[in-house]
């Protein structure tokens, strides 16, 4: 049964379509890599999954329930930058995963705080950041910061983890190490993962599926007239990279007549 289900999703900014007719069904525990050219709505799609933005049309359901209109603990996020809180220590960032949502004040009682601290130290050991537990994120390398960001997101035990180019700012060596780390974390938790990436090799290496966002329709006189959609949905586990050109729009509904374009008055 599908865990995350996206139906006929449309997104437009000020009348300009960004995404159109996006359909996707992902089962629990699947790792979906999202690739595509710059500006084709990959990150917008992730923000929709996060519920940071609302679609113009269409629905997203997670575990059978539609999204509620704002981000919550069921979906964790790791951004390319600014993912951890700069004013909290490394350990503090992990404790925050427990304390921020504990109550309206975001405060833990002394006993719960000790427990959270112990959990944080355990996690720090696991991700190899125990030696910098009392340092601030600014003192950490990019790879360490992203490891912390992933551990922080996982500490809230989300059902779905969203990654927005999480390794985009890292050097190649660190990137490879992070791939191993992420794979391990994912195996341990068995959650559903969506990762936006610019790196095709990375997308295929980590993903069970690789979905490609592209604009199937293109008006050379008006490049922003149509939005992007999922044009390819590839199975990355069996290395089933098609060597024949795939059907252009395997997930798209039949083309609807184009929406009426606003005409300048007079």
């Amino acid at each position: 049964m599908s865990h995350v289900s996206v139906e006929n999703l449309h997104l437009a900014y000020a009348g300009r379509p960004v995404l159109e007719r996006v359909n996707l069904s992902v089962s629990e525990g699947e790792f979906v890599s999202i690739v595509g050219a710059s500006g084709c709505g990959k990150s917008s799609f992730l923000r929709l999954l996060l519920d940071q933005e609302r679609p113009t049309r269409g629905t997203i359901t997670v575990a059978g329930a539609p999204l509620k209109g704002e981000p919550d603990r069921s979906r964790g996020i790791v951004f390319q930058r600014y993912s951890v809180f700069p004013h909290m220590t490394v350990r503090g960032n992990l404790i925050a995963a427990d304390s921020l949502g504990a109550n309206r004040l975001g405060l833990l009682g002394p006993r719960a705080r000790r427990a959270a601290r112990a959990r944080a130290d355990e996690a720090l050991d696991r991700i190899g950041l125990a030696h910098v537990a009392d340092a601030y994120p600014a003192a950490l390398s990019g790879g360490m910061q992203q490891r912390l960001a992933i551990a922080q997101a996982l500490a809230a035990r989300p059902r779905v983890l969203l990654l927005d180019e999480p390794f985009g700012a890292l050097d190649p060596g660190t990137r490879t190490a992070m791939h191993g780390f992420l794979d391990e974390m994912r195996r341990a938790t068995g959650m559903t993962v969506f990762m936006v990436s610019h790196d095709l090799a990375e997308a295929f290496k980590l993903g069970d599926r690789v979905v490609v966002f592209d604009k199937p329709r293109w008006d050379p006189h008006d490049p922003t007239a149509y939005g992007a959609t999922i044009t390819l949905d590839l199975d990355a586990r069996t290395r089933a990279i098609p060597d024949t050109p795939p059907q252009e729009t395997p997930h798209a509904a039949p083309l609807a007549p184009p929406p009426p374009r606003p005409r300048a008055a007079g």
Binding site: I77, A96, A97
Partner: peptide
């Protein structure tokens, strides 16, 4: 701010 929301913060 988004991150804090995904951690359940009010």
């Amino acid at each position: 701010l988004v991150k804090a929301q995904t951690l359940g913060a009010s």
